[in-house]
């Protein structure tokens, strides 16, 4: 697995952990263990997302741009067979 795929897989895992905790915290807003878990994994997610966007392109439109070519539409879309 190349570096890009590895990092993307980590982002997917971290964002799953974070989102799962979001749903749980909505219904258990005082659960300290869940709050700590959320903080830990959202930090990991932020860090991995920053590293990915710097090297391979935007994951949200707020990370898009480009000096002479718009990066948001430059790579395959996620539903395509040949996407990352």
């Amino acid at each position: 697995m190349n570096e890009q795929k590895k990092l993307f897989k980590m982002i997917r895992a971290y964002s799953f952990a974070v989102y799962e905790t979001v749903l749980y915290l909505d219904g258990h807003p005082d659960d300290k263990r869940a709050l700590a878990y959320y903080a830990r994994y959202s930090e990991k997610l932020k860090d991995a997302t920053n590293r990915y966007e710097k090297r391979y392109g935007p994951l949200t439109v707020y990370g898009a741009g480009g000096a002479d070519k718009w990066t948001w539409t430059a790579t395959p879309w996620p539903w395509e067979y040949d996407s990352i």
């Binding site: 799953f16 707020y62 067979y81």
Partner: peptide, 13 residues
Amino acid sequence: WIYERKLQYPVKI
């Protein structure tokens, strides 16, 4: 809402 450029779980058929 803003779009995240990834599927929640991979689809490669």
